[in-house]
Computed example of a mutant assay.
Amino acid sequence: MAAEIILLRGLFRGSYHWADFPERLQRFFSDSVVRCIDIPGNGYLSSEVSPKTISGMVESVRLQRKSKGKTHILAVSMGGMIGLKWAELYPEEIESVICVNTSAKGFSPFYERLLPRNYFRIVRALFSSPFNRETIIYQMVSNQAFNRGTVNEWANYSQNYPMSHSNFWRQLIAASRFVISRPKCDLHFVTSLNDRLVNFEATKAMANSWGIPVVVNEIDGHDIALDNPEWLLKIVGSIWL
């Protein structure tokens, strides 16, 4: 599959949080170009203002891509919303989208799209020191034992590329209001049965509505690329090869 593969992250996450997964994916698809893109307000674009809508995020991502051919997207959480909306608005540009633990308004209730036990945790994280904030986030997105090394790396990164409180709220509101009609491209959904951040039923509800089978991970957390990158690579390979 010779093409451009774009990786998109979710709320208050940047390209850095993929760790070495992009390099692994690049080796898997050696004929393609794998690229990570951040939205305004996250990662290397942390100093910019986040769009208030998922559609606005799409426009920023489109401007950053380099290929003029059709694109394949692998996206986590809110990144999946961006990928789906991109495919809906510009069907001639997107060949396929793989959504990992993604949800949308109208398919499932708000308390499934973001589990209530995380509401206070997210607010507490927003007003915590970088290390404490990343510790809270790690505990929400990972089902692995606490990894101080990873959290330290995230904390150092967040100090260099800090996310503003206003951008956090803008992204959260954009995600909560996200609505989508079925894009015409090839679609795939992956969900974590034991996701601690989003109920796996939220992803299944959207896929089932569109008649698309769901790949279920029974062990890992919201961030499968963090918890089990080899498993995710195998799934992506089975879809795109």
Rank of each mutant, 00 (worst) to 15 (best):
A2K: 15
L84I: 07
I39G: 13
V123A: 06
V58T: 06
I173W: 12
I219Y: 10
K105C: 01
I82P: 02
V151C: 02
R182D: 14
E112C: 06
D186A: 06
P40V: 09
W86Y: 05
A155S: 04
V100D: 05
N194W: 05
L25F: 09
G69P: 11
Q159S: 15
G43M: 01
I219S: 10
Y44K: 15
L187K: 01
L74N: 06
I173M: 14
I137P: 08
Q144L: 11
Y111E: 09
R35N: 05
S176A: 15
R65L: 03
I239W: 04
D223A: 07
V190W: 03
G79I: 06
R117V: 03
G69K: 12
K184E: 14
E23M: 13
N143G: 01
H188W: 11
Y111D: 14
I173E: 13
L89C: 08
F131H: 04
W86L: 02
E92F: 04
Y119F: 06
M206G: 02
E48N: 13
G41M: 05
Y16P: 02
V61F: 04
E218P: 09
L115S: 02
Y119M: 01
N160S: 15
V76F: 08
E48T: 12
S15K: 05
Q26D: 10
N217G: 10
N152E: 15
K234E: 15
S46L: 12
Y90E: 03
G221C: 02
S30P: 10
P229T: 03
